[in-house]
Every structure is written in C-alpha cells, then in structure tokens.
Design a protein around this nucleic acid. Structure first.
Lengths: 215, 215
DNA sequence: GGGTGAACATGAAAAGTTCTCATATACTAG
DNA sequence: CTAGTATATGAGAACTTTTCATGTTCACCC
C-alpha cells in the first residue's frame, strides 16, 4: 500500500521543468503567469519575450527557466490555469444551483465564459481551445475533454440517451460555443451582444435537436 | 481623371514591403510561400524560422526581407494566398454549376474546404479564420468577409429576407463550419467523417431555421 | 541554534533568430 | 548598348532564448 502511495506520479504531462515546492517559489511562478497574461493582452503572443516576462514579474530570467522548460511552456501553463479557473467556476455554479434543466446550464456556462473573457487578463487570447493550445499543447486537449466530460455526466442524468451520443453532441456544442463567442469578442472587445445571443441560440437549438427535448 | 488614375493606391493593406515586379522575383516569392507552408506543416508555426524558409526556398535570407517586412508578413501572405485559392475554387464551382439551391451550395463549399485541407500544404494550420490571422492579421478579417459577402449575394437571390439578416446568419454559419471542420481534422488528420457530417448537419440546420425554409 | 542538503535565485554569456545593409548582378526601357 | 531600377546576397548588428556556475534561503534534524 505504501508503495502505491509513494508511486503516485508527480504529474503526467508536466509542463513544468520543476514543480515549485516552497511557497515563495509557488508565488513567483504565479507572478510569472500574471506577467505573461498582462503582456499577452498588451502586446500579443508574438511580441511576448522571456526577458519581458521576467522583468514584469520582478524576477531574474533564470528563475523563469528554473520552472519552465521554455517560453511555450509558460503560455501553456497560463492556458492550463485559465482552464482550471473556468472549470472551477463552472463546477461551483453547478453545485451551488443544484441540478437544473440543462437548458439553464448552457446559459450559466456561457455566462461564466463571458465573465472570464471580460475580467481575466489574457483569457481572450489564451484559453482552452484557443490559439496557443492548438499549436503548442496536446495535453490541453485532454483538459478540454474535462469540460465535456463534466457536462456529459450532468446531462446524462436528465436525458435518456447513450452516453457516447451525449458526449459527441456536447463536444460539438462546446466547439460551436467557443467559436461563436470568440467571434463576438472579435466584433467588439466586450463581446457583441447580438453575437452572444446568437451563440446561445445556436447551441441550444443544436442540443435540443440532438437531445430530442424542448425546454 | 488621369489624376484619379494615378492616385490608385498600390495596395491598401500591403503585407509586402515591395511588390515583386519582375517575373523571376514573383516566382521566388511563391517559392518562399511554398517553403513556409511545408515547414509549418512539418514543424509548426513556432518552429518556423526565416533562415529555414530561405534555405528551403533556395534563396538568401536577404531576398526574403526584400519583399516581406518581417516573419509575420510571410505567414500572413501565405494565409492570403490560401484564402484566394479557396475563394477562387468556390467561385469556380458556383458559376460552373449554375444557381442551385443554397442547400447544395453548403455542401459544395464544405467539400472544397475539405479538399483543400487534405491537399494544400499548410492549409490546415494557416487559413482564413485560423491561428495566425487571429493573432497577427486584421486585414484577413476583411478577406473573410469576402466569402461571407459572396455567399450573401448568392443566397439573397433565393431567399426573401433583408440582406443584413442574411449576412449575419452566414457569418455565423461560416464561423461554425470553420470551427467544426477544424475539430474534425484535429480528431483525425484526414478529417473525421462523423464530425464532418455533423458539421454539415449543424450548418444546414441553423441556416434552415434562420432562413425559414426546408430543403 | 547550528549544521546540512535540497530548493531557489541570479545574471553573465553561449547559442540561436531576426533583420539590415553595403555590395554585386540581372532586367528593361530607350 | 547604356542608364536606371529591380533583385540577389550573406556577413554581421541587434535582439531572444536558454544555460549554468555561483551564491542564498529554507526545511529539517540533532
């Protein structure tokens, strides 16, 4: 038993070169991610520089490389953090409100997504399913599946359909929602209302058709 | 009048530092784009290097900078070329087949998109509405509108609705199709059939609902 | 409360990229 | 055939990424 305990792997797809152990370094890593987020917002991904990140975070470049293998990993970690926050917020709201109809769940989730777009630095540029992951990460793809899986479980309780069918439909819905909300934010920095509304309409329409339910 | 003629701007949003005038240089520029496409397919956008592009294209780095202001511009130009080819193919098929029902037009367009994904180097990584444009280009967004506008004209002849409503719906449909087909190609390099089919289903379903028609 | 080893911090410099520019050659018009 | 422009080139200047040897801080133990 103790063997099994001891055998727990630190992290499957570790983006970090070394996991921060002490609190001070954990804090530093957070600072670096914050700096990255801010810089991505300000300058865009291409103009991002390890030196800049370090300077903004108030640390030496070397410290950055103490934990991250390379520049990509920094952005990857930021992406992961954004995803975590999103999933966390979704879970919180779902458990908080108790089991509602999935119809409302869609609204809740999209609202959280909108909220994060508007308030979390770097979220609009770097989140699950966005630019960088597609290019750099493959681990995140599994993370994306986390969302889909959570939702699938939830819906499975309300809809009598094979789970795989549900997962498929939710995967599609997830992708559509992401694309349309991104479009909404491209049209207008704070998210064009008309496009947001249409995103909700499309997603609900699709799911209703696939789940064979009405509200 | 001659003034007006002479005043024609070389190119509004010129991604090129200098337009190739002689044929030999035009060919060289094409070679550079070909090289970029191949390298992006092989190594990904991040590992792309101006030196690599030049070497692969069989030219000196300086030649690259003779025409492109920077690395981004190269990818931007590649994106533009991909877009042009796509629009060209779409127009060809549409005029070739004559005015069909928009239902079939959707199929045609998605099929062309699939075809290009499978045969044009770099298309899956860099095309209108993809990775790089979102980050680097804003001009391309207008190009994207070209597609939407073409389709809007086409549909306007068949559906009696305000043009702006049509344009909006087609913008949405375009975005959804792009997202879902990208998903299909992420699932499987040659495009997962199940996801491709669902993409068509979703797009048609949405448009039918918005256009208030059935097949 | 002092010792010890691991974790952490640092920044100069090695390695690698981007981009420039002075120089040389190819075209094109006349 | 000649001037003038377009194009080609690659060494190197400027800037980034990444390494690493060196010095500090922390956690734990006696």
């Amino acid at each position: 038993m103790s063997d099994i305990q001891a055998a727990k792997v630190p992290a499957e797809a570790t983006p970090l070169r070394r996991q921060p152990v002490q609190q001070r370094s954990a804090k530093r890593v957070e600072q670096m991610l914050d700096a990255s987020a801010a810089l991505i917002d300000e300058l865009g991904y291409d103009a991002l520089t390890t030196t800049l990140i370090a300077k903004r975070a108030g640390v030496a470049v070397g410290s950055l490389y103490q934990f991250f293998p390379d520049k990509r990993a920094v952005v990857q970690a930021l992406t992961a953090r954004n995803l975590e926050r999103f999933v966390g917020a979704v879970n919180e709201r779902l458990t908080q409100l108790g089991p509602e109809h999935w119809w409302d769940v869609v609204d809740s989730i999209l609202d959280i997504y909108l909220e994060m777009h508007r308030t979390v630095p770097g979220f609009s540029k770097v989140h699950f399913g966005d630019i960088i992951d597609r290019q750099l990460l493959d681990e995140t793809r599994d993370n994306n599946a986390v969302i889909v899986d959570s939702l699938t479980d939830l819906v499975a309780k309300q809809v009598d359909r094979p789970v795989e069918d549900l997962r498929f439909a939710i995967t599609i819905a997830n992708e559509v929602a992401d694309a349309l909300l991104k479009l909404a934010f491209r049209k207008e920095p704070s998210g064009d209302e008309k496009f947001v509304a249409e995103a909700k309409y499309v997603v609900k329409g699709y799911l209703a058709a696939r789940f064979g339910e009405r509200s």
